[in-house]
């Protein structure tokens, strides 16, 4: 067993302990990049004028109207500033995305395993995957009312299609010898599904989840623009109506911020769930 000791020294396990303690120069580049963003924005304001309010006005609008705003009530919005609308949109995007993701993952992995499921889902996915899903939004508003349900169903439909396609592709990319190996060890179809196909697809499923969640914010917002009782899209369209561009961009900025945070959390979750992946494989 001499080769074991020899290879152990060359193993990447040792790298774990060598995390840098002080902030790396990368963080300075990122901070510089954020500063650059605001500088360019300010310059844009100086050139364009009132059509592009400067960052401080937008941030001021986002802060002053965040929790409570008599101004918003005056515009006909429900009491409570940006906050309840942000909660509503976030709830919609996350719930819709989660429901759709579960359905899409199951149908996608199912179609990879069974030709019958594949044949059943294929025409449905072909239709839903090609048509810009938001043409369905007015239908949902009629069928399910101007409530959160319409938004959630729209987001769920979209996420289901995205996850279905990603899951199908993930299993295709998984080498068939994994499943064969499992079957020679006595694993049945269910065990191969849940111990081999599912964990093996996790990295690609996270890619699909990221794409679905990224689009979910926009889909939720446009359903709100078309007419629902609450949500950040409602704030955007209302402030747009009175040409209050700073408050409108404030809403947009807050929505983008939530999207960035959700994306970052998703990436953290991916890192935790794919610790087994070789470095640089994604």
């Amino acid at each position: 067993m001499t080769d074991i000791d020899a290879t152990r020294d060359a193993m990447p396990v040792a790298d774990k302990a060598t995390a840098p303690a002080r902030p790396s120069p990368e963080i300075w580049w990122t901070l510089g990049g954020i500063a650059l963003f605001f500088i360019v924005w300010t310059l844009g304001h100086l050139v364009i004028g009132r059509y592009l309010p400067p960052p401080w006005q937008v941030i001021a609008a986002a802060v002053t109207h965040f929790f409570d705003s008599r101004y918003f009530v005056g515009l006909g919005l429900p009491p409570g500033g940006y906050w309840p609308h942000l909660v509503s949109t976030t709830y919609t995007a996350l719930l819709g995305c989660a429901v759709g993701a579960v359905i899409g993952t199951l149908t996608g992995l199912g179609s990879a395993h069974s030709n019958v499921i594949h044949q059943i889902t294929r025409p449905i996915v072909a239709i839903l995957g090609t048509v810009p899903i938001l043409v369905a939004a007015p239908f949902f508003l009629i069928w399910f009312g101007v409530s959160e349900n319409s938004k959630i169903i729209l987001v769920a439909f979209y996420s289901a299609v995205v996850l279905h396609l990603y899951a199908l592709r993930a299993v295709e990319h998984l080498h068939p010898s994994f499943a064969e190996s499992a079957s020679t060890l006595g694993a049945g179809p269910w065990m191969i599904f849940h111990r081999v196909s599912l964990p093996g697809s996790v990295p690609e499923l996270f890619g699909g989840l990221r794409a679905a969640l990224g689009a979910a914010w926009g889909l939720a917002a446009i359903t709100e623009l078309l007419g629902t009782d609450r949500g950040i899209g409602r704030v955007i369209i209302t402030t747009w109506g009175v040409q209050d561009i700073a408050s409108m961009m404030g809403g947009l900025l807050l929505l983008a911020l939530i999207a960035v945070i959700a994306d970052a959390l998703l990436m953290l979750a991916r890192r935790a769930a794919t610790r087994w992946m070789p470095e640089g494989a994604l």
Partner: peptide, 20 residues
């Protein structure tokens, strides 16, 4: 008739499940 636990197999490919 199919794979069975009376016969084990070692493949040419790397079939060690990386997620376990």
């Amino acid at each position: 008739k199919g794979p069975g636990i009376d016969r084990g197999m070692v493949f040419q490919e790397d079939t060690v499940f990386p997620w376990m």
